[in-house]
Computed example of a mutant assay.
Amino acid sequence: MSDENKKYELVKTDTVTTSGRTLYRIRALVAIGLLVAPGDLGGYIENVNNLSVYGDAWVSGNAWVYGDAWVYGDAWVYGDARVSGNAWVYGDARVYGDAWVYGDARVYGDAWVSGNAWVYGDARVYGDARVSGDAWVYGDARVYGDARVSGDARVYGDARVYGNARVYGNARVYGDARVKERYDIQWFSNVGSESGTLTVCKAKRGLFVSRGCFSGTLPQFKKAVKAKHGDSKIGRHYATLIKSIEIWFREEKAK
């Protein structure tokens, strides 16, 4: 351990192992912020490179930080959270509960990732964003501003969820989707022959639609529905939903 580390020490007698790696519980050597006193035990890290020796960053509870992951600034990782791979958590960010942040993901600013949420790949969650529940944010997705992603929602690909947008339930936002306001997205549950979720949101060009294996524009979705379901009950139901979607986004555009 570096001689510069006067912030915490590794407790060599208190360890956990994962994927062949040994993680050590940490013990504070000085007061850290307002909540950690000298001698307080924290969570587990693999080595001093996982938790900055500067600032008020801390790992507590049963949280694990390992691999090339790095927690710094005033960020906290706690509860049963896991941060691994090359992930960074910094600024005033919070990762807690049973949340996982891994890969090359970044969580920073005042962002919170909690519950059973996963943030991974090259995803970025920042600003005052909140990702919670069983939500996943991955790929090159960005969630920022005051955005909220929760429930079983998935945000991935090149998607952007920001501003005061809300994405939850079983919604799927991906591709070139751009969701800034809560009115930029609509979703409908228990739809189609598989009783799934139909998600429609604004994109770089027009509207992005996802339903099961389908993803594309609204005109493409119309053609796919007509080809597969025709004038059946399911086809007529989809036609009604499409008309509702057109009315909604036409009126929003008019505003």
Rank of each mutant, 00 (worst) to 15 (best):
M1Y: 05
E4A: 15
E4R: 15
E4P: 05
K7I: 15
Y8N: 01
D14F: 09
D14S: 07
T15V: 12
T18E: 14
T18Y: 14
R21T: 03
T22A: 06
L23P: 12
R25S: 11
R25N: 11
V30Y: 03
P38R: 15
P38W: 15
D40T: 04
L41K: 05
L41T: 05
Y44Q: 03
V65H: 10
Y66E: 02
G67K: 04
A69I: 02
V71H: 09
G85W: 00
V89D: 00
Y90M: 07
Y90V: 05
G91P: 07
D98P: 06
Y102R: 14
R106D: 03
V107G: 05
D110H: 05
A111P: 14
N116R: 01
N116W: 01
Y120W: 14
G121M: 08
D128A: 05
V131N: 01
V137K: 02
G139V: 08
A141N: 04
D146G: 06
S150A: 03
D152F: 13
D152W: 14
R154Y: 02
D158Y: 14
D158H: 14
N164R: 11
R166S: 09
V167I: 13
V173M: 11
G175R: 14
V179W: 02
K180M: 07
E181C: 09
R182E: 01
Y183Q: 06
I185E: 00
Q186W: 04
S195I: 01
S195L: 10
G196Q: 05
T199Q: 04
T199D: 03
C201M: 02
A203E: 00
R205T: 09
G206K: 10
G212H: 02
F214P: 07
G216R: 06
G216E: 09
F221N: 04
K226W: 03
K226P: 00
G230T: 12
G230R: 12
G230A: 11
K233D: 09
G235Q: 06
W248E: 06
W248Y: 15
W248Q: 07
K253G: 13
